[in-house]
């Protein structure tokens, strides 16, 4: 474990906790993409299968359970909670997210490190996570006023993979870890998708004005 990875995991954990708090306290999921949340459930289920087959550490196991539980909980709130589901921007969250699942799976079948079920699913989860934020970013452009909690949620979610990039650089040079092209390229693509959001988020924070993405 290194500081970059710990900071990344904490940023990721904080993002999902912030989102859950927003939904629970405001009883609203306005501005949140259900499609992105559902893609994240698939990402975590596909990636954390080794939860049952390999024990790394208490931390590793707990964090996997927390990410699976919170992502499922958020989807439940947005789909079934009688009050929250009324606030879902169904008409704006129109990205056909199921379209990105087959290509990511196909790519995982073609480009992977080892052709086993676990490895292909793990690779699939990396490719899918790289594009999972797309529905949310598109919804943001259509949302007139983005509330602070949503903005902070997306910032932390983007920051987590950016910190993982630093973690991979650190491990490559300090721990002489082997090249991990699949993780690196997926992580780069994922972080690059947040580029313009980061720009507008930092600008709004500097000028102390409301976060607004150009349509």
């Amino acid at each position: 474990m290194n500081i970059f990875r710990l900071a990344g995991d904490m940023s990721h954990l904080l993002s999902v906790i912030l989102l859950l708090l927003k939904i629970r306290t405001t009883k609203s999921c306005a501005g949140i993409s259900l499609k992105t949340q559902e893609l994240y459930v698939v990402v975590f289920l596909a990636r954390y299968l080794n939860l049952f087959t390999r024990y790394y550490s208490f931390y590793n196991t707990v964090m996997k359970l927390v990410f699976i539980a919170t992502s499922v909980c958020i989807v439940w709130y947005m789909r079934f909670h009688k009050v929250v589901k009324q606030t879902y921007n169904k008409d704006l969250d129109t990205f056909r997210h199921y379209v990105v699942i087959p290509p990511c799976f196909l790519l995982a079948l073609l480009v992977h490190h080892e052709f086993t079920v676990m490895e292909v699913l793990w690779t699939f989860s990396l490719y899918l996570e790289a594009v999972a934020i797309l529905p949310q970013l598109i919804l943001l452009q259509r949302t007139r006023n983005i509330d602070n909690l949503t903005g902070n949620y997306i910032f932390l979610l983007g920051a987590y993979r950016a910190l993982y990039l630093l973690n991979w650089i650190y491990r490559f040079f300090m721990e002489k870890a082997q090249a991990r092209w699949i993780s690196w390229i997926s992580g780069l693509v994922q972080t690059a998708l947040y580029a313009d959001f980061f720009y507008y988020y930092i600008k709004s924070w500097k000028n102390n004005e409301k976060l607004k993405l150009p349509a």
């Binding site: 964090m63 490190h113 993982y164 082997q178 993780s183």
Partner: peptide, 10 residues
């Protein structure tokens, strides 16, 4: 060989 190293990550 599978990336055992990276599997300890989340």
């Amino acid at each position: 060989t599978p990336e055992e190293g990276v599997k300890d990550e989340l």
